[in-house]
Nucleic acid binder design. Structure first.
Length: 579
RNA sequence: GGCCCCGUAGCUCAGCGGUUAGAGCGCGCGACUCAUAAUCGUUUGGUCCCCGGUUCGAAUCCGGGCGGGGCUACCA
């Protein structure tokens, strides 16, 4: 998509709603972070964005742990939902809403959807027969049961064959439709590896899926009752999926479901999102999601995270990293080094430092710092003039003058015939970023921003404005040349900063304050929204460009270089918490 | 058991039939000094997991193997 047009389709991005009994860890933060970066990027583009996350609260175990902690299920869920809210606030996520499945706005609509499916015959009563593991209180599939010799994989006790009456969703009716939708890409299942997995499994055939649970003696009143049958409640998973629709199923928000719907999640729950949910939507007469994107997992210092090892990277460790290296650095590391593809990614301290120094301190931060410093040093921080960003062409002389200065100083000039076109370069980078964004390729989107930074660094080394600055009196055109060079560096970095801002909103807002750039509705609030779409903000020499006379303050280093020999941050000792 | 993915430079990965296989990072060297001992240039570095096959030609397609990982529907 060329940068001079703005996609007007509303953009709706979701994360799974998180199981309230979990403690917020890197996995929850990562999925929500990529949703946040995508949402911020789309808002920057100028689209109408709705970004939803929240908590899934009607699980049976929630009422159990609540009882163990002498709380009602709702009180317990509230305490834990707050932990997610805290974690997400800390991560500076820009979600437009936070759904709790215990809210009426969700329950009422979810219940209505199920009722509709019942009325239509898409949900019907039937018998569920399976191998029950009494010790774990769960059913195992025939295959799993057989593999374990019909014994509990956990306790080794014999499994029981049980029959239970349940309501079933006729998923089997939608096999052909699903296959067509996914194969054709109408529902885009990403990454490709996951799409193959889903299609492969689809070929094995679909069964009816149980969508209710019989309410047992002594059960807490928790969850949503099956419409028309108080003996059952809606199975949490089925009810939970409905959140994506319930929360935007209002007059004001329905435009988001009619727009581009993108569901993000980790790979373990792709089946629910790529198969069961689209089939339910189709049965309800709603459009399926446009994109179902399942990322892989984080591992910790080369080791898989597990409950038994207790090595989850929890929010407190991320807080410790943010404390030391800044939150935006953490966001950058997670976004660019994360498991967005099919392979798992490693959260390793040495890697964090490497990436922090290479990408942020030495590249983005340093480049902005050196340019700011030169404007400060040579022009008292006031941009003396503008430039079209073209160097080395016949009608210009700035680069030639700069090279002359190098020659006068007895310095080597590598290739005197080089040319630079910053307007074109930054516009291409912007287009590349937009193209990457369409497939949620955030790493490559952000790299487009960084490519501008690299280009600026290369340009500075090539034309050496600092050498030129020492000969302003000796060269006729010296001042004009220096002005052109510094302006172009600053303007290019300004455009780079826009492309980097979805991952690092606070740091880029800081740069804009230092450089007096008015991109934000409120310069002091990085979350206040952009004053224009990217196509206008990023136009070289356009309305929002750096102007003659604009103040460029040196400011503090955005990312101070990290010392690799220092020990890795550790989570602060945790204050007493329930759970 | 079934199905799927991955295995390419020290690390992370791109390339998926066609000139001497690439990028970023790291390492070494040179240059530079505006900048956060940053930057720029450049070198080094690879039986493209193994064995067979198809082809004028394979990292790329096919078959088989080895190694790593995933999914297999009621924990969420």
């Amino acid at each position: 998509m060329p940068s001079d047009t703005t996609n007007q389709t509303p953009y709706y991005v979701t994360t799974p709603i998180y199981y309230v009994n979990d403690r917020p860890h890197i996995g929850h933060c990562y999925t929500t972070l990529i949703a946040d970066v995508a949402a911020r990027a789309q808002r920057l583009v100028g689209r109408d964005v709705f970004f939803l996350t929240g908590t899934d609260e009607h699980a049976e175990k929630v009422s159990k742990t609540a009882a163990e902690n002498a709380k009602t299920p709702y009180e317990w869920a509230t305490i834990n939902a707050e932990r997610f809210r805290d974690a997400f606030r800390f991560m500076n996520f820009s979600n437009d809403d936070f759904v709790r499945t215990t809210e009426d706005r969700h329950k009422d609509k979810a219940s209505a959807y199920i009722e509709q499916l019942l009325d239509q015959g898409d949900i019907e009563l039937g018998d569920y027969e399976g191998w029950y593991d009494p010790s774990q209180e769960e059913y195992l599939t025939e295959i799993v049961a057989k593999e374990n010799d019909y014994k509990s994989p956990v306790t080794g006790k014999p499994l029981e064959k049980r029959v239970e009456q349940n309501y079933f969703f006729r998923l089997d009716k939608y096999q052909d439709w699903l296959e067509q939708q996914i194969t054709s890409g109408e529902i885009s299942v990403l990454p490709e590896a996951r799409k193959n997995e889903v299609l492969g499994r689809l070929k094995q055939g679909l069964m009816k899926v149980p969508v209710s649970r019989r309410i047992k003696e002594g059960d807490a009143d928790w969850g949503i009752r099956m419409p028309g049958d108080d003996a059952h409640r809606i199975y949490v998973w089925i009810e939970a999926l409905c959140n994506y629709l319930t929360i935007v199923d209002t007059d004001e928000r329905k435009k988001y479901w009619d727009g581009e719907v993108v569901h993000l999640m980790a790979k373990d729950i792709i089946w629910f999102h790529a198969i069961i949910w689209p089939a339910m939507l189709h049965a309800l007469g709603k459009e399926p999601p446009r994109t179902v994107y399942a990322h892989a997992y984080w591992i910790a210092e080369g080791t898989k995270m597990s409950k038994s090892l207790g090595n989850f990277i929890e929010i407190d460790l991320l807080r410790a990293y943010a404390e030391k290296y800044s939150l935006d650095a953490v966001r950058w590391f997670l976004t660019t080094q994360g498991p967005l593809g099919a392979n798992d990614a490693d959260f390793a301290h040495s890697r964090f430092i490497e990436v922090y120094n290479a990408d942020l301190a030495n590249s983005v931060g340093n480049s902005m710092s050196r340019v700011g410093n030169m404007v400060h040093k040579y022009y008292n921080g006031i941009i003396p003039g503008t430039c079209n960003g073209e160097f080395g062409f016949p009608n210009g002389s700035s680069l030639q003058t700069a090279l002359k200065a190098l020659e006068n100083a007895g310095k080597a000039v590598d290739d005197p015939t080089r040319t630079f076109r910053f307007a074109e370069f930054t516009s291409n980078a912007t287009d590349n970023a937009l193209r990457a964004l369409e497939t949620v390729d955030l790493e490559s989107m952000l790299d487009s921003g960084r490519s501008i930074v690299r280009h600026v660094d290369e340009f500075i080394s090539y034309c050496a404005p600092f050498t030129l600055a020492k000969q302003l009196d000796a060269l006729d055109d010296g001042d004009h040349a220096l002005t052109s060079i510094l302006y172009s560096c600053a303007e290019a970095l300004r455009i780079a900063s826009l492309l980097l801002s979805p991952a690092m909103p606070e740091k880029m807002a800081e740069l804009w304050r230092n450089w007096s750039c008015s991109h934000l509705a409120d310069p002091n609030n990085a979350n206040s929204g952009f004053v224009a779409p990217l196509a206008e903000l990023a136009r070289w020499g356009g309305e929002y460009s750096i102007k003659k006379g604009q103040q460029i303050a040196k400011g503090d280093a955005l990312f101070m270089r990290a010392d690799a020999s220092e020990p890795a941050p550790e989570p602060a000792p945790e204050p007493e918490r329930i759970g």
